[in-house]
């Protein structure tokens, strides 16, 4: 049945043409041109990769990058979920206000929000001052210029990227399905974990994917709120590109990042039974 209605091959080609032409001419060609530096700069060979792997520095940088990305993704999923749920539950009034708050925070310049966090979090900052005045702490807590700062700042920025797709997903769920489970005698807990959460999976996946991948290449927030001891890859690359004009090394480290991410993606696709692009009702 659905075979008959799915798009024919040549039409698929037509639909994919614009994006393929665009990405190939403005993305792949320039990118390959630059990434070739990794094996040609300063001379042809694998010396850049050898250099990267020779010290623990690069491994540490990669480790930081993935650690931060995983933490930020988990935290923003955890914080985004109740928000999306609430917005779906009460679409008017309270939910509308929540949605507007999210839109407002997205609208506000990223740079300004990051700076605002800096002033809030620093040890002479507002949060520490309040906590000290209340007598909760005696010594200011170090919440910025380290990984804590990066994680707070980035999770904050990423929450909307979870909420919007998740909310779209939740509002597409038929409440009757949950009702049916309840009538069949399932407890609230069972319904939540066995019915509700699985139905939210597409939204959680697309939001989580966006946040995770975005975090890998994020520069601004770590640069402003982070310390140097937990340097992430983008900053390492910028140092190579800007200060040392070492494009070979910069490209090599980007290539390694892409390969690792692709490998993770591949494993995910293999482990995952349903494809991230197949429709829920179709296949």
């Amino acid at each position: 049945m659905f075979m008959a209605f799915s798009i024919k091959k040549w039409r698929v080609g037509m639909l994919l043409l614009p994006i393929l032409v665009f990405l190939c001419s403005f993305f792949i060609i320039p990118l390959v041109g630059l990434l070739l530096h990794s094996i040609t700069d300063p001379k042809f060979g694998m010396q850049n990769f050898a250099q990267l792997l020779a010290t623990t520095t690069y491994a540490k940088v990669l480790y930081n990058t993935f650690l931060v990305s995983i933490l930020v993704t988990s935290i923003s999923l955890l914080l985004g979920f109740p928000l999306a749920w609430c917005i779906t539950l009460v679409p008017k009034g309270w939910g509308r206000i929540l949605l507007n708050i999210i839109l407002l925070s997205m609208w506000t310049s990223l740079l300004a929000r990051t700076y605002s966090w800096l002033v809030l979090l620093q040890s002479s900052g507002v949060i520490n001052k309040i906590l000290m005045a209340l007598g909760i702490i005696d010594q200011p807590i170090e919440m910025v210029h380290n990984m804590t700062g990066v994680i707070i700042g980035m999770s904050y920025i990423m929450i909307p990227f979870i909420v919007l797709p998740l909310q779209a997903c939740m509002s597409a769920i038929d409440p009757m399905v949950l009702q049916a489970a309840s009538i069949c005698g399932a407890s609230a807990k069972t319904i939540f974990f066995r019915v509700f959460l699985p139905l939210c999976k597409p939204g959680l996946f697309s939001g989580g994917l966006m946040v995770f991948v975005m975090s890998l290449g994020y520069y601004i927030t770590p640069a402003l709120l982070g310390g140097v001891n937990d340097m992430m890859l983008p900053e390492f690359i910028i140092e190579q590109v800007q200060n040392f004009l070492n494009w070979g090394m910069a490209s090599a480290s980007a290539v390694v990042l892409v390969i690792i991410t692709m490998a993770m993606f591949y494993v995910y696709l293999k482990v995952q039974t349903d494809s991230p692009v197949s429709s829920n009702t179709g296949a």
């Binding site: 320039p30 041109g33 630059l34 990434l35 991948v213 290449g217 520069y219 910069a250 692709m262």
Partner: peptide
């Protein structure tokens, strides 16, 4: 999304 933007920036700028 995956490629650090600075790499995209330099690549595109050169072109």
């Amino acid at each position: 999304m995956m490629i650090p933007v600075v790499i995209i920036a330099v690549a595109l700028y050169s072109v």
